Deep mutational scan, measured.
Amino acid sequence: MTYKLISNGKTLKGETTTEAVDAATAEKVFKQYANDNGVDGEWTYDDATKTFTVTE
């Protein structure tokens, strides 16, 4: 399945996607992506749209 990340960081804003077997796997990928880009904030997940959002 395709999962989307919306980043509302102070230094990184935008969207990216990943293919993953489940939401937990996608979350690990996205949290590593955010960490690699210096984004640390509040996370939410919408199962209906398969979208994670991180806001700093």
Score class of each variant (00 low, 15 high):
35 N>Q: 14
1 M>H: 14
6 I>V: 11
6 I>C: 07
46 D>I: 04
33 Y>S: 02
30 F>I: 01
47 D>H: 10
26 A>F: 00
7 S>V: 15
2 T>F: 08
33 Y>Q: 03
26 A>L: 01
8 N>T: 11
45 Y>G: 00
9 G>W: 06
42 E>S: 10
49 T>E: 05
28 K>L: 10
21 V>I: 13
21 V>L: 13
44 T>H: 11
24 A>E: 12
48 A>Q: 10
18 T>C: 15
7 S>G: 06
14 G>A: 12
16 T>N: 06
52 F>W: 06
17 T>W: 14
53 T>M: 08
19 E>G: 05
9 G>I: 14
29 V>D: 03
1 M>D: 14
54 V>G: 00
43 W>F: 05
37 N>D: 03
53 T>I: 09
4 K>E: 04
30 F>C: 00
30 F>D: 00
36 D>L: 12
23 A>D: 05
52 F>S: 00
56 E>Y: 09
38 G>I: 04
40 D>S: 13
49 T>P: 00
15 E>D: 06
20 A>Y: 02
42 E>A: 10
23 A>Q: 11
10 K>Q: 10
40 D>C: 14
8 N>D: 10
14 G>P: 11
36 D>F: 08
2 T>E: 09
30 F>N: 00
4 K>N: 05
28 K>W: 09
3 Y>L: 02
31 K>F: 05
14 G>N: 12
55 T>P: 00
32 Q>G: 05
11 T>V: 12
3 Y>C: 04
37 N>L: 13
20 A>M: 02
50 K>N: 07
20 A>C: 09
25 T>P: 00
30 F>Y: 01
38 G>N: 09
26 A>P: 00
32 Q>H: 06
31 K>T: 04
39 V>P: 02
56 E>G: 06
12 L>M: 10
28 K>F: 08
31 K>R: 15
8 N>A: 10
45 Y>H: 00
55 T>V: 09
25 T>I: 07
39 V>M: 12
2 T>K: 11
31 K>C: 05
44 T>F: 10
24 A>G: 07
52 F>V: 00
9 G>T: 15
48 A>W: 07
47 D>K: 07
24 A>F: 09
33 Y>A: 03
3 Y>S: 03
14 G>R: 12
21 V>A: 12
18 T>K: 03
22 D>V: 02
41 G>P: 02
3 Y>E: 04
19 E>W: 15
20 A>L: 02
4 K>W: 12
22 D>N: 07
41 G>F: 04
27 E>I: 06
19 E>H: 13
45 Y>K: 00
56 E>P: 10
38 G>T: 03
53 T>H: 07
32 Q>I: 09
51 T>L: 03
29 V>A: 08
24 A>P: 08
2 T>R: 11
38 G>V: 03
7 S>P: 03
17 T>F: 14
50 K>L: 10
35 N>G: 10
31 K>E: 03
3 Y>Q: 04
5 L>Q: 02
3 Y>P: 04
24 A>N: 08
7 S>F: 15
42 E>W: 11
46 D>P: 00
31 K>P: 01
37 N>A: 10
23 A>M: 11
3 Y>N: 04
4 K>M: 07
42 E>P: 04
56 E>L: 09
11 T>I: 12
54 V>L: 13
25 T>H: 11
29 V>K: 10
31 K>H: 09
26 A>T: 00
31 K>Q: 07
26 A>Y: 00
48 A>D: 10
47 D>C: 07
28 K>M: 12
52 F>K: 01
21 V>R: 11
55 T>K: 07
45 Y>S: 00
25 T>C: 08
37 N>Q: 10
18 T>P: 00
22 D>R: 02
45 Y>I: 00
40 D>R: 13
24 A>I: 11
20 A>E: 04
47 D>A: 13
7 S>W: 15
29 V>Q: 08
49 T>A: 05
38 G>D: 07
16 T>R: 11
47 D>V: 09
10 K>N: 11
5 L>E: 03
43 W>G: 00
1 M>L: 10
50 K>R: 14
